[in-house]
């Protein structure tokens, strides 16, 4: 194992962490909401993908075409019917505690439905193929994951910067009252933001499930990695989130070189170092 190997491995891992992070980053940006069940919804989506694949025999990546709309609808309705009722008066407790309750419900519901045995989605030849780069072999699946993350970040940046719905997201985030006075329905905008967040959850879930085992309790760790990526990168921009994901991936990758049980701890340590030295993250939005 040399440094280049570790570096590339870290960047590729960072792609996966960016996928975990991007939906969190989005809903925090639009409505200051933190979804504690984010990781558990990733796992739920993985189980939905498992069921879809079981019923249709599709490749996981094709199954995404089914899983994404399912998750987006769940996200929209969750926001519209449940979370919107807890928002709007500056008290961060209710929405946070509701998603906390959801996290526990999802974990236990998955446990009841699927037992605690871990499973994995088979990606066929994608799983084992690799691309030779000089003396290094780059796994096709991790490479594809990173590309997916980059594409998703660019698409979301484009939506936010250039489209009508993106303007509505930013305006509602700036001043929900004035946004409603010009005709923007905050409850609908919030639900749309959650729907997009859940679409990214679907994508993250399938890439996670093709790459490693998952079980009903895999959610919280994904939430934490996503959260660390968001904070390391700095709130307010998707490019920041991508950078945060890559830094976290690198930290874990180099940590694992020291000792296998240092991998996750190194990620946490980098998170706290960033918090100490650059509390607004590496790439904060200009004030």
């Amino acid at each position: 194992m040399n440094v280049i190997d570790t570096l590339i491995g870290g960047l590729l891992l960072g792609g996966l962490y960016t996928l975990f992070a991007i939906g969190l980053s989005l809903i925090f940006g639009v409505m200051r909401l933190v979804n504690i069940a984010h990781g558990d919804f990733i796992v739920l989506a993985a189980y939905i993908a498992y069921l879809v694949i079981g019923a249709t025999g599709l490749h996981p990546l094709v199954a995404l075409l089914v899983v994404i709309p399912i998750m987006a609808v769940i996200g929209y309705l969750l926001q519209k019917w449940v979370l919107n009722r807890t928002m709007g008066d500056d008290d961060v407790l209710p929405p946070l505690l509701v998603t906390f309750g959801l996290a526990v419900i999802i974990q236990n519901a998955l446990l009841a439905a699927f037992t605690s045995n871990s499973m994995r989605l088979s990606a066929g030849s994608l799983q084992t193929s690799s691309l030779p780069l000089g003396s290094i072999q780059i796994g096709l699946l991790p490479l594809f994951t990173l590309l997916m993350a980059v594409v998703l970040v660019i698409v979301l940046e484009f939506i936010f910067a250039r489209t009508r719905i993106g303007r509505a997201f930013r305006a509602t985030s700036d001043d929900p009252q004035i946004a409603s006075a010009i005709g923007v329905r905050a409850d609908h905008i919030y639900a749309l933001a959650m729907a997009i967040s859940f679409a990214t959850i679907a994508i993250a879930s399938v890439f996670l499930a093709m790459r490693s085992n998952f079980d009903p309790y895999s959610g919280p760790a994904r939430l934490i990695y996503g959260f660390e990526a968001v904070i390391i990168g700095g709130l307010g921009s998707f490019y920041g989130t991508l950078a945060g994901g890559l830094v976290l991936g690198l930290a874990q990758s180099f940590g694992a070189q020291i000792s296998p049980n240092m991998q996750i701890l190194s990620g946490h340590l980098v998170f706290f170092i960033i918090l100490a030295l650059r509390p607004r993250g590496l790439f904060p939005k200009a004030p």
Binding site: R167, A168, R170, A171, D174, I182, G183, V184
Partner: peptide
């Protein structure tokens, strides 16, 4: 809207 440009501030009101 502070994260919108001058034109975007106008445009969003026009949109809705």
């Amino acid at each position: 809207f502070r994260s919108l440009s001058v034109e975007e501030n106008l445009r969003i009101a026009g949109d809705y």
